[in-house]
């Protein structure tokens, strides 16, 4: 059940159907939401950490790209 000031028709509208292909990953112990950007690369969308220091880490700035390395 929702208790919000946003009208429910806005919350549940189907106007925006371009589902972003985002994934939750953990890099060096920091959880973040990423989306694919080119070959074997992922762009950081959002950092999900409560440690303020993680947000100052230049590697984890939203918008920067991470290389995806397959460990197998």
């Amino acid at each position: 059940m929702l208790h919000t000031i946003v009208p429910l028709e806005v919350v549940f509208s189907n106007k925006y159907d371009d589902l972003p292909n985002q994934q939750l990953i953990k890099v060096d112990g920091v959880e973040m939401l990423v989306e694919p950007s080119g070959f074997a690369e992922a762009k950081i969308v959002r950092v999900l950490s409560t440690d303020p220091a993680h947000y100052l880490n230049t590697k984890f700035q939203p918008g920067s790209n991470l290389k995806i390395i397959n460990k197998n």
């Binding site: 919350v11 106007k15 409560t50």
Partner: peptide, 25 residues
């Protein structure tokens, strides 16, 4: 570069619970 003994929890937008909300939220 700093180490913080205080952590920060940000609660933004909709609080999402039992139902996954559409992506515009």
């Amino acid at each position: 570069n700093s180490e913080s003994n205080i952590h920060c929890l940000t609660i933004i937008g909709q609080v999402e619970g039992h139902i996954v909300l559409p992506p515009q939220n």
